[in-house]
Write a protein that binds this DNA or RNA. Structure first.
Lengths: 157, 157
DNA sequence: CCTTGACCTTCCCATCGTTGGAAGCCCTAC
DNA sequence: GTAGGGCTTCCAACGATGGGAAGGTCAAGG
């Protein structure tokens, strides 16, 4: 079958199939005399695997790992589980991050009148700026710069 | 002060300050004869506002909106609240998405022995592929393609 | 005076996953 | 044989950020 049908059957767009081939996630498939890519059912199967992994939020690298494990019939399920749990941990981290944002922002919004008046704790918070999360970067910065960086007087700033 | 100190004080990297200027999020600042950008305390204040908004997950467009509201002293707090709550809704959507992934994946991982044996429900699930989330695309696809697209026989695929 | 080193400038490239478009060939149905 | 779709490749963009090169500038110190 052509790439269009493979895309349709797998749920991976033709565009992405070509992309995945170009970055080496999937091996190049055969071509017709005219240069059209030819896909077999097994290729569609692989593409569905990829689609499903993508839906679970795996990165391309992660998908590559999972694909390799899938194809390795002597794999240990421990290896698969490990990968999966690492990914779950990543997801949880991300979720916690977003949760913090959402919580902070809805707390601020709750305290906002939301009427005709201009005063609003949301803007006040943003304007105040220097708070916990915003202060963290000072350390990052000092660390990143190899330190010895602190409030030394800068030229004629 | 120079860009480096403005970056240090605001928590926005010099790189990003230049970037924000180039995309019009912040107005171009004055320059010395040598072309160095010159920042005032008020600029640092604006940069901190941006930094804080970014920490709350606002996109550049969102930040631009918030900045405009901040500067508009006749704004209605309702407008600010609306924007903020829209963003919270976006965050919640994202969180729900990630939650679904994490939950699915940890359920699968829970059922995985995680030992020397090769069989693993995680890989089985990925390989099965065609399930709820993965089937959704058929509709998307048909819709996107203007329909009348269904299983019509394709040439000699 | 000249060097050193930290700073600044612009410009290009990379990331990550995905989509869009353009130009042009191929295939099939009518 | 022509219209229309599908296929090909290549180039670009999104969002936010970082890395680095090549070169100008500034302050301090020998």
């Amino acid at each position: 079958m052509n790439i269009g049908q493979a895309a349709w059957r797998s749920g991976v767009s033709a565009k992405m199939i070509r992309h995945y081939e170009s970055i080496g996630l999937i091996a190049p498939v055969g071509r017709t005399a005219a240069g059209y890519r030819i896909y077999a059912d097994s290729d569609v199967h692989t593409l569905r695997f990829i689609r499903r992994a993508r839906d679970l939020g795996f990165s391309v690298d992660g998908i590559a790992d999972m694909l390799a494990l899938w194809r390795d019939r002597s794999r240990k399920s421990a290896a698969v589980k490990k990968r999966a749990l690492e990914h779950v941990a990543d997801l949880r981290r991300k979720i916690a991050e977003l949760e913090t944002m959402a919580r902070t922002l809805s707390e601020l919004a709750e305290r906002c009148h939301g009427d005709e008046r201009p005063d609003c704790p949301i803007l006040s918070d943003l304007a105040a700026g220097a708070r916990a999360s915003t202060l963290a970067h000072f350390d990052e910065f000092k660390l990143k710069k190899g330190n010895g960086f602190a409030p030394r007087r800068r030229g004629r700033a």
